[in-house]
Computed example of a mutant assay.
Amino acid sequence: MRPDAWHLTEDIDEFLSHANDFLCSRPALHTMQLTVLEKLRTRGADAYGGAGTVVGRLERAGEVGATFYRLPSGGLGVTPLTPEQAGTLAEHLVALGHCLRSISADHNTATAFAEAWQRHAGATPTLRVRLHLYRLGTLTPPEPFPPGRGRLAGEPDHEHLMRWCREFAEDVGEAVSIDAASWDGTRFAEKRYTFWETPDGTPVSMAGLNPMVGGQVRVDPVYTPAHLRGRGYAGAVTVEVSRAARAAGAKEVVLFTNAANPTSNALYRRVGYRPITDWAAYDFAYGTP
């Protein structure tokens, strides 16, 4: 056996029996792996559109050093890799006949893998988005703090939530259908939402929390309608859900921001979030035969 070897499987429970300790060793950095794999573990093949999910772990002398998941859509998510490891993984996946549509990972890993995938698979990578991954340090409510209060969204708020999630998806360029029929199959369904309300009870902003996995919770999405922005509502609702996550026992509270949005990056830094790493997503295009 080679010193480093990738072990692939479709059995999530078997995979986690080997890789869970590794993933939980750095829960903030591994937030995407933890949440995606937990959804697969609890919901099975239907979680991401049916059968075809493959997961893999990189081992040396029985120790896991990296993992990946490949979804039925062709999306690949990877924990940090060296350029050599990224190249080896790309070569291995090509040899097994995998066709990838995208990769999402820390910036250095995503870029190294995209270059390797172009060499080995002949696909042209296009950078879709650059993100920053933040973790919560000392929570610092914004000053001035807007009047109002946070309120957990309930069943009567479902139509309102779907409308705001549609608007959020449009703002960030996500191609997703969000309505009563499709809601359960979207990434927005598994979250717990909080509204920020003005003193008269009008919702003006919202924030979602992903389920806690491995001691980490990810804040996503945070959304304020365009005509209500600039009044401190997003900061207030972010503080509200961040405080709730800590109170629920989260060791790490994390969130992603678009690197091209200076307003949101400045906001999250003001309320106590600190950068962990840069993140990137690449899409792959293939030439016609």
Rank of each mutant, 00 (worst) to 15 (best):
G122A: 06
E38T: 11
L81D: 05
E143C: 00
E155D: 09
G214S: 05
M206G: 10
P262I: 03
A245P: 14
L23D: 03
R119Q: 11
M32C: 05
S73M: 06
Y233N: 00
R101P: 00
G52D: 06
A45K: 04
G50E: 06
Y193H: 09
N20H: 13
N265Q: 06
V54P: 09
E174V: 10
T238D: 09
S177D: 14
L71I: 05
P225W: 07
F22S: 02
R41S: 07
R166T: 10
L89R: 00
T109S: 11
G249I: 12
N20L: 15
T224Y: 14
S25E: 02
A95K: 15
G52T: 04
G87P: 12
L161Y: 05
T124M: 02
H7S: 10
A95V: 04
A169T: 04
P141V: 13
L228P: 04
D220P: 00
G287K: 12
D283H: 11
H227L: 08
E10L: 03
H98C: 09
Y286R: 13
E240G: 00
T277E: 14
P83M: 05
P144F: 06
G77Q: 13
R218V: 04
G148T: 04
G215S: 07
A19E: 03
F113M: 07
G56C: 02
K191G: 00
V54C: 12
Y282K: 06
T224V: 15
A19D: 00
M162T: 08
T138M: 03
E167A: 15
T277S: 10
P27V: 04
